[in-house]
């Protein structure tokens, strides 16, 4: 059976890895290619690279970072940030991305997901969903968490699956950077309602959090950034706990 994946995330801005809390207060955490290589050596199953402030103007810096990261590592690389067209996606694939992740552009234009999937295959299209809790429900946010939509994350996830997404990267804005654990209710709601793999994101602070979200939460992969960047936890420590609890991971 397919192993559960542990995925470090590099949030990059102007060619540097940054990390904030609740999507705000970004701090410099180093060079993406170097960090990616360190994570591969430490047992990462995949790398996600998100350019959190990507605009068309700084696309050059993003492409350079993708190329240098992709030529360094030999595990899969997902790249997201500012992708608005099939051509944008194509440019990133040529630079060494194995999958691309779309968020805002998918909400604005859901047919973009279908168009990229048709050309490059569903397996190459990740739809990132950023959700924030509001009373007893969640709302999907776009533009790095700055703009609310009327979309419900579970319905939206089903809709993008239908449109051709091969994977869903589900982030809880409330938990982002808090190290208080993944949003289990949100993760369960999405992962048990779609037929494509779900990557849980936002809130990882301990190995126990990974265990919970990958078992009870139903997630296929767990993503984390700050907890790994700050060396509060190593990927191997996470995997050791998972193996001891009978969860299959790549040793």
């Amino acid at each position: 059976m397919t192993t559960k994946r542990i995925i470090p995330c590099l949030d990059a801005k102007n060619g540097k890895v940054v990390k904030g809390i609740n999507f705000l207060g970004l701090k410099d955490k180093g060079n993406p290619a170097e960090l990616a290589q360190r994570y591969e050596e430490e047992g990462a199953d995949e790398i996600v690279f998100l350019d959190v402030t990507a605009t068309m103007e700084d696309r050059g810096a993003l492409l350079d970072s993708v190329r240098s990261t992709a030529s360094t590592i030999s595990i899969p690389l997902t790249v997201g940030g500012g992708i608005r067209s099939v051509k944008d996606a194509s440019t990133l694939f040529s630079a060494g991305a194995d999958k691309i992740s779309v968020n805002t552009a998918a909400v604005r234009n859901p047919s973009l997901v279908t168009a990229i999937a048709r050309e490059f295959g569903s397996q190459a299209v990740v739809v990132a969903i950023d959700a924030r809790r509001e009373y007893d429900r969640w709302k999907v946010y776009v533009r790095s968490g700055t703009e609310a939509t009327q979309l419900d994350p579970v319905k939206w996830a089903k809709q993008v699956e239908e449109a051709g997404a091969g994977e869903i990267l589900l982030t809880s804005i409330d938990r982002d950077g808090t190290k208080n654990g993944y949003d289990m209710d949100l993760t369960k709601a999405v992962s048990f309602n779609v037929g494509v793999p779900v990557i849980a994101s936002g809130g990882a602070g301990s190995a126990q959090h990974f265990l919970e979200v990958l078992t009870e939460g139903g997630a296929d992969a767990a993503l984390a950034a700050g907890v790994f960047h700050d060396r509060l936890l190593t990927i191997m420590e996470v995997k050791k706990l998972l193996i001891s609890k009978g969860v299959e991971v790549r040793p």
């Binding site: 059976m1 397919t2 192993t3 559960k4 994946r5 199953d45 569903s122 397996q123 091969g166 994977e167 037929g195 494509v196 793999p197 296929d220 992969a221 790549r250």
Partner: peptide, 9 residues
């Protein structure tokens, strides 16, 4: 269980 099959086996 889920498709696409994505991951390490």
């Amino acid at each position: 269980p889920k498709l696409p099959h994505i991951g390490w086996d």
